[in-house]
Amino acid sequence: MTPNNAVLSNDFERKHNYLRISLIEKCNLRCAYCMPADGIVVPPKASLMTTDEIQAIAS
C-alpha cells in the first residue's frame, strides 16, 4: 500500500495529524460530539463494525 501524504483539514483549515478510533463504546472522555451529557443509545453489538473492518477503513 502506498502512503497517502494528504493532510486532513476541516472547514476552518485546522490540520489533523492523527486519527483516534474507539474500538469500544465505553470511552470515558465524554466528548460533546460522541457522548453528550444526556447519554447515547448503544446499538446492538451485531450492528457494530469489527476490528478488521475498522482497520481496513483506517488504512
Rank of each mutant, 00 (worst) to 15 (best):
A58V: 06
A6N: 12
C31H: 03
M35N: 08
N17W: 04
Y33F: 15
I24F: 07
N4L: 06
T51L: 10
K45A: 14
A58K: 04
R20Y: 06
P36D: 10
K15N: 10
P3H: 04
S9W: 00
I54G: 01
A6L: 10
K45C: 00
H16V: 04
C27T: 07
Y18L: 15
V41P: 00
P44S: 12
A32L: 12
P3K: 09
P36Q: 09
N28Y: 03
R30G: 06
V42C: 09
L29F: 09
G39E: 05
N5I: 02
I57P: 00
P3C: 08
R20H: 15
P44Q: 13
R30Y: 10
N5L: 10
L8K: 11
H16F: 15
N5V: 03
A46H: 11
S9E: 07
N4E: 12
S9F: 05
L8R: 13
L23K: 02
R30F: 09
I24M: 12
P36G: 08
I24G: 14
L48I: 08
C31W: 03
C31K: 03
T51D: 14
S47K: 15
S9D: 03
D11M: 14
D11F: 06
I57V: 14
C31L: 01
H16E: 03
P44I: 09
I24P: 00
A32G: 00
A37D: 07
D11K: 15
M1D: 01
I40T: 14
M35I: 04
C27K: 03
R20W: 12
A6H: 08
I40A: 02
R30K: 11
M1K: 05
K45L: 08
M1Y: 06
L19S: 02
I54N: 00
A37I: 09
L29T: 00
Y33K: 12
D52G: 09
M1F: 01
N10W: 02
V42S: 07
Y18S: 15
F12A: 08
K26G: 13
N10C: 06
R20G: 06
N17F: 13
A56N: 13
Q55F: 09
A6G: 06
I40Y: 08
D38I: 05
K45M: 03
S59N: 12
L29R: 07
I57S: 04
H16Q: 07
L48N: 10
N17R: 12
I54W: 04
Y33L: 07
K15S: 08
L8P: 00
L23F: 13
N5S: 10
C31R: 01
S47P: 02
A58P: 02
I40L: 11
Q55M: 15
L23C: 04
S47E: 15
